[in-house]
């Protein structure tokens, strides 16, 4: 009599799938290309924020001698809770000269009511900006548009352009071209009353 020992065959290991690096690289490259194309499309279709849309936030570094709320550096998000009059201008801009006095006078009238006036010098040479502000005795906060970061976010097409932003950070009015006293005295009280 012979004893038979039955042995079960050892479980065969599943063959490990070989990573095909060229395929990985190819798909990564396709995904990267698609991501950049999508990013480009989004940017190409970016448009100026209109009335009723959220105002894009940004950081500002004020010119020497200018500040807001005792800060030399600030951002639009820090100004939330205040109506903001965001004015793009340049020393080389002729039309800007028609509105600077009106904006300064409005600033003097509404500053105690918490309205923030912010002048952004677009594509300007700093000494010329300072000379312009000195010429018009401008006292409201002013900042250079460093790297044109702010004007890009607001998609401005020229200067002057002024955005009226309410306490909640929503654009209430966009003025292409110079603002005037009547416009300021209509829009600012509306934003204050909200």
């Amino acid at each position: 009599m012979t004893d038979t020992i039955q042995t079960t065959p050892p479980a065969t290991e599943a063959p490990r799938r070989k990573i095909r690096w060229p395929m990985v690289v190819m798909w990564a490259a396709i995904l990267a290309l698609l991501a950049v194309l999508a990013w480009g499309l989004v940017n190409a279709n970016a448009s100026r924020p209109e009335a009723g849309q959220n105002a894009p936030t940004f950081n500002v570094e004020f010119f020497d001698g200018y500040e807001w709320d005792n800060r030399a550096v600030s951002s639009l998000s820090e100004m939330r809770g205040h109506p903001v009059v965001l004015n793009f201008w340049a020393s080389w801009c002729v039309e800007c000269r028609y509105e600077t006095d009106a904006i300064e006078q409005a600033w003097q009238r509404y500053r105690d009511q918490g309205v923030v006036f912010l002048g952004v010098a677009y594509a300007d040479v700093e000494p010329n900006s300072l000379a312009y502000m000195n010429e018009f005795n401008v006292t409201f906060p002013h900042a250079p548009d460093l790297g044109t970061a702010i004007s890009k976010k607001y998609e401005i097409t020229g200067v002057p352009e002024t955005f009226f932003i309410d306490k909640n950070g929503v654009v209430r009015h966009v003025q292409i071209g110079p603002v005037n006293q009547q416009m300021l005295d209509t829009l600012i009280p509306q934003m204050l009353a909200e």
Binding site: A29, A32, L33, V36
Partner: peptide, 16 residues
């Protein structure tokens, strides 16, 4: 980087 990736991608596709 993207043009280089594009060329690499083209070469890979061609070789495949």
């Amino acid at each position: 980087i993207l043009p280089a990736l594009g060329v690499l991608l083209g070469l890979l596709l061609f070789s495949r």
